[in-house]
Design a protein around this nucleic acid. Structure first.
Lengths: 250, 250
DNA sequence: TCCCGATATTATGTATACAATAATTCCATA
DNA sequence: TATGGAATTATTGTATACATAATATCGGGA
């Protein structure tokens, strides 16, 4: 009762899932903390049934952990977990690139990808990038990765990549940056964009192994970058705020 | 009410999930077929709430597909899907092997793996294998793969491999064989076992790239074998009975 | 003071009633 | 006969009551 705001067209389940995910990612719910249904009901405004569904889905998503005796806790992630997830995504996207190359793609299929890259180019000036442009880059980069994944035309693989990218720090998103980190991001971004071009070229020329290798290297660039960013922080602020520490240059 | 059989210690949700999975994998529910809650309630004996939970979990597992307007259908898989899933698992297990090699494992960690391989060896005679021994092999092989995966000590990766193996045809299980296919299986099995040994050796010597390459090749052996088996069948009996057509030699 | 056990409380698992939406059927009309 | 629409039917989404199991609290005894 008492529907407050939000879109009424989506189900309570989805709304609850979205809201709870926000709560977790924003750090309002801390890792290890038990999340009771009643609490979730109060936070979301939905009743227990949709809340339970949302909790199950969030568990499958990897944000929650089931307690054997019942209920869920918020999952915590170590730096190693984050780095592994990036490497994992690299392996998966590498496979996607190889599939695309081996199975062949028409030049028509490649158009959107190239368009995406051209847009990125137009965003980046030779020696610097504005913070607004950087946020556009994050969007375009995500699109590029999605398009590339779909080129594999392998539903099972696409599905798996989606799931691996569900964890925000594992997704190819770029991080929220402070002004001071911008130069470093600019440099990384140039390398990343170069790799983007090479992958497309490899796929075009049906060089599967090369396409795969580059995508893996691409992920390593991301983890290298994350490590650099982390080194500058006094400590790794694990999960509260982890949503803000995404990986860049990828 | 009216609990008929089964274990009462597990929840209705889990029971329903198990039962429905059986129904799908055995082919009683055909691909594309819509599965209504009421129908599922009748089939499982549980009420709608646990049934709904089970359906959500089966969707996440990849056996069901959500209909936008609500409800679920049984997912169908093409031969390509199956082959891709095997290749995917190969990539994932390859990564696990590399992690294990790079991060180093104590000889104590390797013991159970080696024990597993020794048991397999004792099962296989030089020139043939009995059908009973083959079924033991399937179990031991699955254990080997689980142990290897765990050696990566990477929770995110282990989780992902579990999910990729949830689909029975993608899991390293070995197929139910007819007597006539046994000689071929024997041959494949010898190669597979050799690869098992090589992976362990590579991990022991911290040769990450080699360990990874072998595990990938290992998966290719599986898909090669599946293709061979499929060639002998008049048609690929997609999902009804797919549970029976698992891949061997891996 | 500490530990153990019984009781009370809270949380989750399950069942079911109700509401809203999607699907189907059937009839009327072109 | 085909088609469109309205009414009916079925199915899912949601809320909530009840049962059961886990957890916390409190009191008594060593």
């Amino acid at each position: 009762m008492a529907e407050q705001d939000s879109d009424r067209s989506v189900s309570q389940t989805v709304r609850a899932q979205l809201r709870l995910r926000d709560l977790i990612l924003s750090g309002d719910l801390r890792p290890g903390e038990r999340i009771s249904e009643l609490q979730a009901v109060e936070a979301t405004g939905a009743s227990r049934t949709p809340v339970r569904m949302a909790l199950v889905r969030l568990e499958e998503e990897g944000l929650l952990e089931a307690i054997p005796s019942g209920g869920f806790t918020v999952k915590g992630f170590s730096e190693r977990d984050v780095l592994d997830s990036i490497e994992l995504r690299g392996a998966l996207e590498g496979l996607a690139a190889r599939f695309a190359a081996e199975r062949g793609v028409s030049s028509r299929d490649l158009e959107p990808l190239k368009g995406c890259l051209d847009e990125i180019d137009s965003l980046v000036q030779r020696d610097r990038i504005s913070i607004e442009a950087f946020s556009s880059y994050v969007t375009l980069n995500a699109r590029f990765h999605v398009l590339l994944t779909e080129l594999s035309r392998s539903p099972s693989l696409i599905r798996q990549i989606d799931r691996a990218s569900a964890l925000p720090f594992a997704s190819p998103s770029g991080f929220v940056m402070t002004q001071s980190e911008l130069p470093q991001a600019h440099e990384t971004l140039l390398i990343a964009q170069d790799q983007h071009r090479v992958v497309v070229d490899a796929i075009e020329n049906r060089e599967g192994a090369r396409a795969e290798a580059i995508m893996r290297e691409h992920a390593r660039l991301a983890s290298r970058n994350l490590r650099l960013v982390l080194k500058n922080k006094t400590h790794f602020d694990l999960l509260p705020g982890l949503a803000l520490i995404r990986t860049a240059g990828d």
